[in-house]
Design a protein around this nucleic acid. Sequence first.
DNA 1: ATTTAAATATGACGCCCATCATGTTCTTGG
DNA 2: CCAAGAACATGATGGGCGTCATATTTAAAT
Lengths: 226, 226
Amino acid sequence: MSISAKKDSCLTCEAKQHSALCSSPEVVRVIDKVKVVCNYKAGQIIFQQGQDPLGLFAVQSGLVKLEVNSMDGHAHTLRILGPGGIAGYRSLFARETYKANAIAIEDTSLCYIPKTELFQIFAQHPEATLNFMQSICKDLGSAEEKWVAQMDKEASERIAEAILFLQDHFNDQKWTRKEIAQWAGTTPETVMRTLAQFEKEGLIDQAGRKIIILNRPGIQSRSTHL
Amino acid sequence: MSISAKKDSCLTCEAKQHSALCSSPEVVRVIDKVKVVCNYKAGQIIFQQGQDPLGLFAVQSGLVKLEVNSMDGHAHTLRILGPGGIAGYRSLFARETYKANAIAIEDTSLCYIPKTELFQIFAQHPEATLNFMQSICKDLGSAEEKWVAQMDKEASERIAEAILFLQDHFNDQKWTRKEIAQWAGTTPETVMRTLAQFEKEGLIDQAGRKIIILNRPGIQSRSTHL
DNA sequence: ATTTAAATATGACGCCCATCATGTTCTTGG
DNA sequence: CCAAGAACATGATGGGCGTCATATTTAAAT
């Protein structure tokens, strides 16, 4: 991990348009002063389960996944963050240690914002806090939706849902079968069999490792039960 | 649903000790002025999927469950709220329509707080907002944990976890097999077979419909995989 | 360039648990 | 108080999909 504090300015940062934190020019100006830019290479760990959160990480560029490692050695992807996404906020605000690992999927630049400065911003900008709460509540909605889908939908439906989600949010990113499985709550084998089936039906095309959706409505109908 | 605005004062309310909303005497005083107390009988619906949130509901006494009805007619319990719990906040802050139904499990008194007044409170009391965010983030943690458990743990383990949770948080409340199933993410039949097994092993006693945990460490060990 | 590990791909096996069916026992409201 | 509907209880059945094994291809590392 390398630190490059000066060169990246919030003024030129495009990620702030998608960030729940950078709600007003006013707030951005403050963040610009207190942030520290950190660079990670693909595969590097940003923080780990059990550590104490001292701030949060805003994705400037790149891709980050939050995943938990269960006792039996399986990993499950809770959230995936692109530019504008915030990592580490849940544990920080819940006042707990990290319950998940944050890992850079590809080369990534993050803005680290220390918690004291962050709390100052929230104290002085109530509208920024409310804005952030909206984002948290959406994440909560997604999490609860995911739990329900895990029961109500069969694996192929969750996989269809997953490839739609991943394409919509992180376009032209290539995903391994394993990564899709960890997001969809299934196994790489099941993902492969399902994708092969989708391809046979002409719904998708697997060019190398990139999945191209040929028939979007078709995939959508395969993502819903009944 | 009946309204009884005057008689219940926040000053004498014991639920506020467990509420993320009633963080300071200052805030409580404001809430006392703007709240409307609503009474529901067991089984009554407080709000329903699709409706527009106009405020939120703080449980004063009684028990409320938030559940989603999936297409195939199954219901899943997202959260259960006792005194101090807040219903309806997720949709309100996410600025969405309700995605779940709120139902009174037993006779319940709620304090309805209109959103305009609520947002005023948050604007004037940043520390109250932060306090509430902590609660939301814990809920998010629970939701994500539940998703992981749905995959990693087998049904009997989730059921063991469920009866521990339900006893810890809502002591001497009797639960139907169906309610346990909807919370644990399984079916009433599986709950029954599992409870019968636990009873045979001397871990619990099913006195009528109330479950008594005879061997707490035993149940705890049955709630964890490997 | 060559080695080594990771990812892709398929087949076989098995079992957990949802589903359906059927009967009994509560309990609740008219 | 009695009837109708929940809730409880148990058995039988079957299929979805996780697990394991194995072979091939791709990607990465030195």
